Amino acid sequence: MSEEDTRYDAGHIEVLEGLEAVRKRPGMYVGSTSERGLLQMVFEVADRAVNEVLAGRATSVHITLTPDGGVRVADDGPGVPIDEPEGASGPGLEALLTQMHAGVGTGGRHDVTIGFCGVGPAVVNALSRRMTAEVRREGFRWVQEYARGVATAPFNEVGPAAASGTTLTFWPDADIFGATEFSFDGLEERLRELAFLNQGLEISLTDLRRLDRSRSVRLRFPGGTRDFLDFLDGHTAASTPMDTIAFKREDPRMAGEVEVAFRWCSCPAERVQSFANSRPTIGGTHTVGFRDGVAAAVTAYAREQGQLMLTDPDIDADRISEGLTAVVSVKLDRPEFEGSTRGVLGNAEVRDCVGQAVQDHLGRWLNEDPERAAAVIDQIVQGARRD
């Protein structure tokens, strides 16, 4: 091999600017160019609308899969500013649709990131063959169109508007995505999680792609994590030997709040789902703390009632899981995740805060309802002795 073949200098470096980089390496921004990436496209556009509702500036979000293969995301908020006036709560619409991370929140407890990226709608614009933006604001209606991330015309005022809001509609670029069929079930699953975890949130999802088989769901759950628990248990909830234990607690030590709902059912399977700032997690300090708290409360009660002898060891956290269904959600001002996929929460202080909160509430319930408590404790203690 010659020296010329192995030489590496500045001439070999390719510099990609702005949205050109998104189209060159789409998987870096939406995860893949398959179904997963298509879902992420919807979530990136819906992020802003969902946070408008949670901030109290809008009442609902409407997501529609259109007959021509597009996705329409609409909210009834005040409308994104056309320009960027001083003191505005967010960027102007053109910046939102052409600059990555524009409009993305701080990542604190009051912000929701639906997908795993949080790069904003500009990425969706770049990966769409077409995007239309409609803003209804201060009595006027404005419209603009984009093609593959580039505006085809300036914003145009097209008439009066009776109400306010923002509607973004996009059609994925078939040159980027091998197939452009959105999964209704995949969208519904993630949007339902958000509605369970954020009690003031209302989202509707409508599929109009086949007019003879159209369907629509409205996702709003005033019961929050209690409703989530019922959904996870399904038909087994009727055979539950104890009531749901649910609470929410603010704790300044972890600069956030914990919300937990759990109960034991007669079925042997364990169903524990955890979330950090409404992101699904596969574990972390919040789930470890939850198990610590349950084990501590059960052990203390079993000793008080004589179901554990002095010579018996404490009940290990792994022994409590048979038939346990739980939702463990924390919302933190400064969440710390392990790894680039953000699947594991790492905030060390969260473990003690969640553990203490769970121990307090479960311990109180055990003492208030001895009959049902005895059935659950006996099941756990006998299982621990068999092991």
Rank of each mutant, 00 (worst) to 15 (best):
E4G: 10
T6S: 14
R7F: 13
H12Q: 12
P26I: 01
Y29R: 06
L38N: 08
R48G: 11
V50L: 11
L54P: 12
A58F: 04
V73A: 04
V80D: 04
P81S: 02
P81G: 07
I82L: 14
P91M: 03
G92Q: 03
G92K: 01
E94W: 00
L96N: 08
M100Y: 12
V112P: 12
C117Q: 06
R136F: 05
R136K: 15
R136V: 05
E138W: 02
A161T: 12
A161V: 12
A162H: 12
G165M: 00
T167N: 02
D175W: 02
G178K: 15
T180Q: 11
D185A: 14
Q199W: 06
L201K: 13
L211F: 13
R213C: 02
S216A: 12
P222S: 11
G223L: 10
T225S: 08
S239A: 14
T240C: 06
P241N: 06
M242A: 10
A246D: 10
F247I: 01
C265M: 03
A269K: 02
S274H: 00
F275C: 05
T281R: 01
I282W: 08
G289Q: 07
G293Q: 09
V294L: 08
D318H: 15
R319M: 10
I320N: 00
T325F: 05
P335F: 04
E338I: 11
T341V: 01
R342T: 07
N347D: 11
Q356S: 13
V358I: 07
E368A: 15
V381Q: 08
Q382L: 11
